[in-house]
Design a protein around this nucleic acid. Structure first.
Length: 153
DNA sequence: GCCAACGTTGGC
DNA sequence: GCCAACGTTGGC
């Protein structure tokens, strides 16, 4: 099993939104970055655990946990001219973009703020706080996963 | 294949 | 809103 961190702008889609979805499950659409896509395609597995991260907001940070419940499959929003994620270069017979479904697992009582993560030596090597990190889907090590969980309990 | 121009991300 | 850092595009 692998661990991940996935970013979302809470104004667009928050962990509360995920919890409110049918079956508390939602398709993680709109990823338009090859590295993030390749993680989904090549390394993500059903059952993988995900830190849900709120970005571009007042207090950015990790707000809870979700779980991967499907393998990667074509992101149909790329074929929809009405969608903000429409990509005319993604051919439906050869889809360029993929998504997975994730299910709500847990919302932390308190957010783990980015400012705290930056200041903890045991989390200093998280991809999240590495220079110029912008990936919206990032791998997390088992050690980092445990270190973050320790902060919530 | 290089690289300048442009677009996006995301913290602050 | 600013801007650093990175990704993508497209001419050559």
């Amino acid at each position: 099993m692998n661990y991940w961190l996935m970013k979302s702008e809470p104004d667009e889609f928050s962990i509360d939104d995920l919890k409110a979805c049918p079956n508390q499950t939602e398709a993680w659409h709109g990823i338009r970055n090859y590295q993030a896509r390749n993680f989904m395609r090549d390394e993500m597995q059903i059952g993988d655990q995900v830190f849900f991260y709120h970005s571009s907001c007042k207090v950015p940070g990790i707000v809870g946990i979700a779980e991967v419940v499907t393998n990667a499959y074509p992101d149909s929003t790329a074929f929809d001219p009405e969608s903000k994620y429409f990509d005319p270069k993604s051919d439906p017979t050869k889809p360029r973009w993929l998504r997975v479904d994730i299910r709500f697992v847990e919302k932390f009582n308190d957010i783990i703020p980015l400012s705290l993560i930056k200041n903890l030596p045991q989390l200093a090597d998280m991809y999240l706080v590495s220079k110029g990190s912008r990936l919206s889907i990032q791998p997390v090590t088992a050690e980092q996963w445990q270190a973050v969980l320790m902060l919530t309990r």
